[in-house]
Design a protein around this nucleic acid. Structure first.
Lengths: 208, 208
DNA sequence: ACAAGAAATGAATTCGAATTCATTTCATTG
DNA sequence: CAATGAAATGAATTCGAATTCATTTCTTGT
């Protein structure tokens, strides 16, 4: 036996794998899933097309893993906000705002991650990531209920509703029409809606 | 000239066209867009594959028209509810509930109509239909604001949020897991969330 | 009944991107 | 440095469903 996979090679392999995953992110952020061909990704990663298949069994799995990686990062960001100090309401508002802001700043990528038609494996990964986001929000809503900031409600359903509202606002028809300068305003209004959606005080027609 | 398209033939043509559109609905309701091939649709409609192309220029346009037809009908249903008697809050709750109930009763079809990856033309049609649904809800929200049932808010954004919450609740991870007996409960809870979302008193940020 | 044209048919073709694989390049070890 | 086997390459192959089109069937008006 005149060959053994040495540690340095191992790292190079890992490196190459990572570079391919990053290339997916870059290409998808540029042309979306629709335009992202394996050959394009390979070129962006600086490897040959066939090499991709030495690291990933299929296009679908490669893209799904890339999505999971990215979504996982965003979930961490949101979780960090959720774990910060403050009232549940404030943390929820921040979590939603941060999500919205990051999305509008990389809108093409966000659209791909959230809503663009893609391989079934990608869709499956997307469902998982939505659950992960929803779990974070659900925790915040439960915090708020526990502290009486929010009225008793089905936190699971409410969290799903917030995710839906966020994604619809960010990638739906509303966002399509929004001009660039409105991006900040849009994310502010979406945040306001989300807060209102779970917040306690029922509306009283005070003076106004 | 020994042939002229007579009225009877005209009707037969129209009939056939309609039957093809209905076949799309049936097939998609059964196997979703993914499994819906032109050949399958043709068979379901009782025509040959090639015939489909005498009525529609491409698969994408055929499917998009089928979706638009179906969505248009649902929008009418919702609009009818919205136009009924009662407070804005009651009508909004009814509109949302009816939408949710009808969706859970034909879940496969609803999923395809609302969220399943499909041809770009279908996606475009979907965006339009969402706008149509959102417009109905926006009208209701504006009614509620005018009558002081709801607090002042961006009705456009709120309507989009409701659509998002509805679709996420109905076709998202939440719904995937829900068992059949929970369908009614689910639609009730989603309705509750939506109503609260627009009727709660706005949260006022204490910081920043 | 027949000619003229329209509509329907479905087998054959097209097409484009994913995947493969024979060949080449690179890394390791004695 | 030679031998061995892994990894990379990218041109060639595969594949499956949309689309086409030569042929057949149906309609109409004389």
């Amino acid at each position: 036996m005149a060959y053994r996979r040495t540690e340095r090679v191992q790292e190079q392999l890992q490196d190459k794998r990572d570079r391919i995953l990053q290339a997916v992110r870059a290409v998808v952020g540029e042309v979306g899933f629709r335009g992202a061909q394996v050959a394009t990704v390979a070129e962006a990663a600086g490897v040959a097309t066939g090499t991709v298949y030495r690291h990933f069994p299929s296009k679908g799995e490669l893209f799904a893993e890339a999505l999971a990686l990215n979504a996982g990062h965003e979930v961490s960001v949101m979780q960090a906000v959720a774990d910060s100090e403050g009232t549940a309401a404030a943390r929820l508002a921040d979590a939603v705002r941060v999500f919205a802001l990051r999305a509008v700043r990389a809108r093409r990528l966000a659209w791909a991650m959230i809503a663009e038609p893609a391989e079934p494996e990608v869709d499956a990964a997307r469902l998982k990531s939505r659950r992960a986001f929803a779990d974070v929000l659900q925790g915040l809503i439960e915090d708020g209920i526990a502290s009486s900031e929010f009225p008793p409600q089905n936190a699971r359903v409410a969290a799903a509703g917030l995710i839906g509202a966020l994604t619809e606002g960010l990638v739906g028809p509303l966002a399509q029409e929004a001009e660039a300068p409105n991006a900040l305003t849009l994310s502010r209004e979406i945040t306001a809606f989300c807060l209102q959606a779970v917040s306690a005080r029922p509306y009283e027609e005070s003076r106004s």
